[in-house]
């Protein structure tokens, strides 16, 4: 009997003693953790992408509660998560527009890259770009070893048949992982509502830039876009045109005047504005906002859009307080006007 009883008592006693000690210790050494931190952690997407610049989701939650970090820094979670965190923290939320990644280079595929030599090395952009200025002739362009695609956790970057990289705007959360991964800094985060982008990063002088671009779509710093921009949003710095997105109104004029097609207009095909006269109260806001003076009309009288001048930027649609302006197919305004 004792051969069973003694071991059972010993182990049981040991376990009981440890149990009591631990139970006591958990009370004695209890560290109060703010329950808000746990709540926020459960809301965050747990991708630990680091887009908020804190070490992981738990680190961000900690920073929100302890150091009062902003509640809308989680790019993958977007507005929804920011709203929930704001509710927990009891702060009001200023909505932040979603950013997406834009690759400022149209070269970098199997068929549209001018090569200096064939690169056969470690499968990484960082490595390819450091060897003899990179394998392609343009020392600013994409070396397509796809570090950006590998860095993307949200399946937002895809490789086409030509070896080009495409950003899937629905999947892109604007976390910035690809921005950090690109050794040539070709990728930038841009608010999703901005639809006109300069897709070149070459700081070479015009002729060299054009020659070394395998796609012939280099920015040659001719300055046409700068001259034609109605809001002075474009400047040329180091032989490269750069859009100041805080001023850009999506008019797309720069894209239509660019001789090398270095500027992409993602609003194509553009429509034109049409003012429904029965709804227009003649407030003149649209005429004032129109970047190309395509809208005319007197105060308190219905306004009209000149279809020849309209560039389809949709600025007037957003400006109209009565929602009297509609975007219609090009050339259909004349017919609509007759109906009225």
């Amino acid at each position: 009997m004792n051969t069973i009883l003694i071991p059972a008592l010993l182990i049981g006693g040991l376990a009981a003693v440890f149990g009591i000690i631990l139970a006591y210790a958990s009370k004695k050494f209890f560290v109060e953790v703010d329950p808000k931190i746990d709540e926020i952690v459960s809301i965050l997407p747990s991708a630990n992408c680091g887009g908020c610049a804190f070490p992981g989701c738990a680190g961000y939650a900690d920073a929100i509660v302890q150091n009062g970090a902003a509640v809308n820094l989680c790019a993958p979670g977007g507005e929804e998560v920011a709203k929930k965190i704001a509710a927990i923290m009891g702060v009001s939320l200023t909505p932040k527009e979603r950013d997406i990644a834009v690759i400022h280079c149209q070269s970098g595929g199997y068929n549209n890259t001018a090569f200096k030599f064939e690169y056969k090395g470690i499968n990484s952009c960082r490595s390819a770009a450091t060897i003899a200025g990179g394998p392609n002739q343009c020392i600013w362009g994409c070396v397509f070893q796809y570090d950006c695609v590998k860095a993307c956790q949200f399946d937002a970057l895809h490789i086409t048949e030509d070896g080009m990289k495409v950003v899937n705007e629905d999947n892109c959360t604007g976390c910035g992982a690809c921005v950090k991964a690109c050794p040539r800094s070709l990728i930038e985060l841009v608010p999703i509502s901005k639809r006109v982008h300069i897709l070149c990063s070459s700081r070479d002088k015009g002729p060299i830039a054009k020659k070394s671009c395998g796609n012939n779509t280099a920015c040659i710093a001719c300055g046409l876009c700068v001259k034609n921009c109605p809001t002075q949003a474009i400047t040329i710095v180091n032989n490269l045109a750069i859009i100041d997105y805080s001023k850009c109104i999506n008019c797309g004029i720069c894209a239509s005047v660019c001789p090398t097609k270095a500027i992409e207009d993602r609003m194509l095909p553009r429509k034109e504005a049409f003012i429904h006269e029965d709804q227009c109260i003649g407030c003149t806001i649209c005429a004032k906002k129109c970047p190309v003076q395509a809208i005319s009309g007197e105060l308190k009288h219905p306004h009209k859009v000149d279809p020849k001048l309209c560039v389809g930027c949709e600025v007037c649609v957003k400006a109209c307080p009565k929602n009297a302006i509609e975007m219609v197919e090009k050339g259909s305004t004349v017919a609509l006007a007759k109906e009225n």
Partner: peptide
């Protein structure tokens, strides 16, 4: 096993506090 498990638990709590 019993000792080590209890010990690690205890040490974890102790360190977290102190």
């Amino acid at each position: 096993i019993l000792t080590i498990a209890a010990l690690v638990q205890f040490v974890e709590m102790f360190i977290q506090k102190s």
